[in-house]
Design a protein around this nucleic acid. Sequence first.
DNA 1: TCGATAGTAAACAGACCGGTATATTTTCCA
DNA 2: TGGAAAATATACCGGTCTGTTTACTATCGA
Lengths: 195, 195
Amino acid sequence: MARTARGGAGSKVLETAHRLFYREGIHAVGVDTIAAEAGVTKTALYSNFGSKAQLVVSYLRERDRLWQAEIDRITASIDSPRERVLAVFDAYEAWSARDRFRGCAFVNAAAELPRPDDPAREVVRHHKSAVRGYLARQVDLLCEPGPELPARLMLLLEGAVVTSGIERSAEPFRVARGFAESLLPPDASEQSAER
Amino acid sequence: MARTARGGAGSKVLETAHRLFYREGIHAVGVDTIAAEAGVTKTALYSNFGSKAQLVVSYLRERDRLWQAEIDRITASIDSPRERVLAVFDAYEAWSARDRFRGCAFVNAAAELPRPDDPAREVVRHHKSAVRGYLARQVDLLCEPGPELPARLMLLLEGAVVTSGIERSAEPFRVARGFAESLLPPDASEQSAER
DNA sequence: TCGATAGTAAACAGACCGGTATATTTTCCA
DNA sequence: TGGAAAATATACCGGTCTGTTTACTATCGA
């Protein structure tokens, strides 16, 4: 709705594309399949999205939007920055235990779309920067060392998602969470009025 | 040579497939392209590898073999287990700075091949277990805590490879290396100066 | 009532997909 | 030197890929 007006057919297509692209990969799913599964015609798909490449971009944007919403929902009721960071690790772990889990959609998309100037890769970078930004804001509230800690936490999270996707196990997240716990200073109650 | 006898055409095909699969992705490269680029006929390709899926498996096996050889070469002249681990991080960083770098071939392959029982995914798991095994052996020589440290180092390495592939920067490896350095106890024997 | 919007239905285009069949040439060695 | 085996060239198979075209229909607000 924000930048591309699309009707009921468009949202059904996006929903279907989201599911199939994540589950089977981008190159592995054709537009005919998406249109058929969504119960719309190819004409409707193309009038809403213009091309498969733009549909892929919409898929990743939607995925990023859902992630933001989920993080907000999860951390809304948590007051401590430290606990918020750990809750992110917990959320990823819970996600990885679901049977539809197939690793990070953004990493998978980047693996299939090598060209650095591909518009989809821009969405990937934007998402990763959003995740890192969230962690950095929590760390800022918690202590004041340089930018090293957020980057380190990000490495842990990224490593755990990839490993978990390959091994189909939630174990990497438990390792990562324990590791993160050991890195984060205890909540300095709530007196550190840094910002 | 070991398990599949293949002639000169076979090795040219494997070499070409290796280059194209890594650079452009598996689904994005057709067998016609590989055969043409390798300068052999499709018949020769199929008589050597049987199917595209088996060629993919051969590609990943070769990649794993090359990794083992490279690690052996790099660490042959290093006596300290601690320095060997750090040299692995350095080797990845140097690799990531090359312009052909496009992230981890095994992670990328797993992203394109969702089925858990795909033979290619078995090679992926085998490779990851080999990397983890190498780190674990060095850690064993260095100290005696549980299996947590190798798993943690592996998370760092994996996270750095993925992030570096997405951002096309060597920076994640510098963060990961510094992080790893802080985790590894000083060499027990002749605990001389840190680098 | 007009006309824009959004959709359906179905065929088509041209390229490319993995894989095979057939026939010809080259190689090697007994 | 003869002949089997291996490598080659070339054409072909059915199917799928993204994307377009044409023709028709339902809805709804001005």
